[in-house]
């Protein structure tokens, strides 16, 4: 006889969280945090989190006293990266986005990572005006904006595994 075993729904506070890194950070912060300051945020791929992500980044770098233009550059780049993760990476369903922010001296480092579909042809995706979904009026300028408004841009992607966007910008004010 087949017995159906029903797993009870797991609540957030009952979930097993891997806190190895957090414990290590508490004991030896210098081994885990390699920058002057850094923060990692994990959030579901919901479009309403686009504004949260760029505002969090703006708040994080206020200490570097950026100009309004530099702040706007960073916000735009982050908005583009997070939007890409949501509409392309997780086109087929929900998922999680990891955003890492760090400052070292006057340089801001940003990583936006998704664990979604991945990009088939990164070189093509980075071309200005290229979009896989013109019918949805995507302007195809996401990567161009990231490239134009940040100092460096690196896109690492594997089909089926996800995409990591790495950017940096030095605040010159």
């Amino acid at each position: 006889m087949n017995e159906i075993v029903r797993k009870p729904a797991m609540r957030l506070w009952e979930m097993q969280v891997d806190d190895t890194q957090a414990r290590e950070a508490a004991e030896r912060p210098e081994a885990v945090h390699k920058h002057d300051n850094e923060v990692t945020l994990r959030f579901p791929a919901l479009s309403r989190n686009e504004s949260f992500a760029r505002m969090a980044a703006a708040a994080f770098i206020t200490g570097l006293d950026p100009t309004l233009e530099e702040l706007s550059d960073l916000k735009t780049a982050i908005s583009e990266a997070v939007t890409n993760a949501i509409i392309h990476g997780y086109r087929k369903g929900p998922g999680e986005i990891r955003m890492f922010l760090a400052t070292q001296g006057m340089t801001v480092y940003v990583e936006v990572e998704d664990y979604g579909e991945g990009i088939f042809d990164v070189v093509k995706a980075r071309e200005p005006m290229y979009t896989t979904r013109p019918q949805e009026e995507r302007s195809g300028m996401g990567f161009s904006f990231m490239e134009a408004f940040m100092d460096t841009l690196e896109v690492i992607s594997t089909v089926g595994t996800g995409t990591l966007v790495r950017m940096s910008k030095t605040i010159r004010s």
Partner: peptide, 8 residues
């Protein structure tokens, strides 16, 4: 604030 979505 506006990003490429607004342009589109």
């Amino acid at each position: 604030f506006m990003d490429s979505s607004g342009i589109g």
